[in-house]
Design a protein around this nucleic acid. Structure first.
Lengths: 246, 246
DNA sequence: ATTTTTATAATTGTCGGACAGTAATACTAT
DNA sequence: ATAGTATTACTGTCCGACAATTATAAAAAT
């Protein structure tokens, strides 16, 4: 049943709105399957193309999605990575510089480390220490080091138990790490300083020492700046290039 | 030119990816017009339907859009409100607590104040002072005070010249301010402490005193916590309710 | 009576082509 | 130049079709 044709909004948008509404009032609950495109086209009295365009909108808003390799569309709960990707894209388009991201991380990360010192669970502490162990074995493999550093900071974020900061970080980490990889690949003894810093951070967390955790996290991030200095990396205008290498 | 058909991703998604990439590397700059659907279909060697579906995705990601009543699609600068709304929604769904948002703001805001002290432009300083003036005249109007505080912090964010932190803030401010409004509405002499803090912050910025700016911004945020204490507001579980009042 | 295999139906991705209604543009007449 | 008009270009929507794949029902095998 097509909505009033006087209000000239494209059909695909009208249909999107109606389906969104159904999802929001749980007329369609998370996990439910959508009818097939043909059925939808039939029941809305429009052509399948219009339905498809509406579906694309729903999909991109993360309201529906499908399991890998499956055909059926399901109503889904919003996922994290999609949002973070969108934030990253926005920052790239806004031409945010590496320096700005650096500053932001320098602001957020130490604070999260301090929170982690207060709230870390034994389980996460264990994971952090496992990360240290692995790092010790990869001291000269820049590629793995980058991954491990990323994992380390993700664990730290999780340990902080602050999802607001975690969400804030999300969009930036993807932009930050490509640059870090470059540094790790070009500095001599790449993993050494990193490992020392990570060890101090974990140690401080284990001791529940907020100040120390914060301090070492800050030093660790500041090391990044030093690395850029050494390699002559320009904080002003490299974000896009680096992100593309990713 | 269709991409490798071995990698089974739908054409509409491949085309979306390619167009997104072009926008991100500014091959298509903000303000540029997109070719017509027919042209795109021709140049990508696909059917117009596929192009249309790709366009729906771009549109929903706020990468392109069209002026009201116009036909031409333009590359658009991502609008802040749309993204921030989505971040807020996600946080709400994730059931982030007011306490977490408070902590995040407490982390970010002082840092931004310090940056503002370094980088503020005369123009923004002027706006900040204008905000103070208006605040002095609204000391007992909680509604206006809330708006003014919001504006104040937006100006501060702008003055910091750090867009990474600005984007980080976006999703949270919408969640934070409803709570603040509640406080301002229920505390006696609502605007007094706020104004004093704002004045100190602006003063410090004018003096280019990073430390002082940071300190006063921190105190200002911490005041919020005190207010919650006084009113017995629970930092743990009020986010959803407050956000809805907005 | 389950599990496995196989045949059949349903569904998605993509294509070709068409047409009405409207914005954009070129063209004319002041 | 400006205003008004005729053309053209483009979007929204529809019809219909088909290959490739997934889902399902039916048949066969354990």
């Amino acid at each position: 049943m097509i909505a009033n044709p006087l209000q000239r909004a494209p059909l695909y948008r009208q249909i999107y709105d109606q389906l969104e509404a159904k999802i929001v009032n749980r007329e369609l609950k998370v996990g439910d399957a959508l009818p097939s495109e043909t059925d939808l086209a039939l029941s809305y009295g429009v052509h399948r193309s219009s339905i498809r365009e509406a579906i694309r909108l729903l999909e991109e808003n993360d309201l529906i999605g499908r399991a890998a390799g499956k055909k059926k569309l399901l109503v889904t709960a919003p996922k994290k990575d999609k949002l973070s990707r969108r934030i990253s894209t926005t920052m790239l388009i806004d031409e945010v510089s590496l320096g700005e991201v650096y500053e932001a991380i320098l602001t957020i990360e130490p604070s999260m480390a301090a929170m982690a010192a207060e709230r870390v669970t034994p389980e996460l502490l264990e994971k952090l220490e496992a990360n240290l162990d692995t790092t010790r074995e990869a001291l000269n493999d820049p590629e793995r080091l980058t991954t491990l550093d990323q994992e380390f900071h993700n664990l730290l974020a999780e340990a902080s138990k602050n999802r607001a900061l975690q969400w804030s970080r999300l969009g930036m980490s993807g932009l930050f790490y490509p640059a870090e990889r470059k540094l790790l690949a070009n500095l001599k003894e790449p993993g050494k300083r990193m490992l020392v810093a990570h060890e101090h951070i974990v140690g401080a967390i284990k001791d529940r020492d907020k100040q120390a955790a914060e301090l070492w996290a800050r030093r660790h991030i500041e090391d990044f700046l030093r690395g850029c200095d050494v390699l002559g990396v320009n904080l002003g205008d490299m974000l896009n290039d680096l992100a593309q290498e990713n």
